[in-house]
Design a protein around this nucleic acid. Structure first.
Lengths: 180, 180
DNA sequence: CGACACATGTAACACGTTACATGATTTG
DNA sequence: CAAATCATGTAACGTGTTACATGTGTCG
């Protein structure tokens, strides 16, 4: 549920054909997410099936199909802007799952995995910070690339903070289990 | 790539049958992620197909199949503990996508969506903080429920921080476009 | 008895993703 | 001419997810 909406958003701005959607999608997202062209066409088929999009054969050149939004598609997109990512149930995050299942194997195992994940995340954070600082003038869409880089940094920081929280909660819990 | 590994982790601790995996999975994750039983069986089939798991018919009762890890499964799981969630390319996050595509429609539209998302996230954060504070004694697995609640809070805070960053970057960019 | 938890499974579908096949057009 | 880019599409597969069908055992 991401490529779908991205294509709708692009088509709402202007009708486009498939290949254009690929390149525009990549440009809007700062060139960080390569999008296989094939996926554009399969997604377009599904959007067509759902009545959110329809194709017009371009007159001058038989090999191009121009896609445009239907009213239903426009409505669907409108809903998306309003929507806030649900979290009930909370998103099944891989890091979270990994730590929870590690803890189930015992406090030491949990702490061990937490330590390993933290080390890796710290390394990631360092490089992400570097990337975010040099405002990536190379990218077609500078602002987007910057924002994505920011997001990576902020996410990594949050994950690290959560890992610290886990560690302290585990200590608290194990100390409580063996009081005096 | 989450249910799969969760089941492997459980089976590594002890052989289990399908229904047990469902309940244990839910308990380990603090009871916040309901897991449809059917999914356990389909996932087990796939794990079996991949040679990570094999089933033994329990002797006493013909209707139960006990699953256990194969050496390959144990190896696969070992790899998982070591692995840190990649982010190259960075995870295609829905909030991120939404904001990027909103910005593409122009700064005002971007700011508008950011504002709406922030409002919703603030509300979510408030209720998440409440949930996290009362340490959820009702849940079977107290620690897990607590950690999940913490994660929701930390994530929401990070998203809010990122939205603020977006806003300031947009302002900076638009001011740069219209210098004097 | 009736409801509920325990227990197993199948069928179908959603989306994401890749690999592959095909051809036109541009450009060095 | 050869290679790269533009352009369209299909087939196949992966995981997640739901709905449905079926049956046993237990407990109020």
């Amino acid at each position: 549920m991401a490529v779908r909406e991205g294509l709708l958003a692009l088509l709402d701005r202007a009708p486009r054909y498939g290949y254009q959607l690929k390149t525009d999608f990549e440009s809007v997202t700062g060139g960080v997410w390569p999008l296989n062209v094939g996926q554009v066409y399969t997604t377009l088929d599904r959007l067509q099936r759902d009545g959110f999009v329809h194709a017009v054969e371009s007159d001058d050149d038989g090999s191009q199909r121009i896609y445009e939004l239907t009213p239903a598609g426009r409505e669907e997109l409108g809903g998306w802007w309003q929507t806030v990512p649900r979290d009930d149930p909370p998103p099944r995050d891989e890091l979270m799952l990994k730590v929870l299942f590690a803890i189930e194997r015992g406090p030491e195992q949990g702490l061990q995995v937490i330590t390993r994940q933290r080390t890796a995340l710290l390394a990631l954070l360092q490089s992400a910070r570097r990337t975010a600082r040099q405002s990536i003038a190379a990218a077609a869409n500078e602002l987007a690339a910057q924002l994505v880089a920011d997001a990576v940094v902020v996410r990594a920081e949050a994950d690290l903070r959560w890992l610290d929280l886990c560690e302290s909660r585990i200590s608290a819990a194990t100390n409580k289990d063996v009081p005096q």
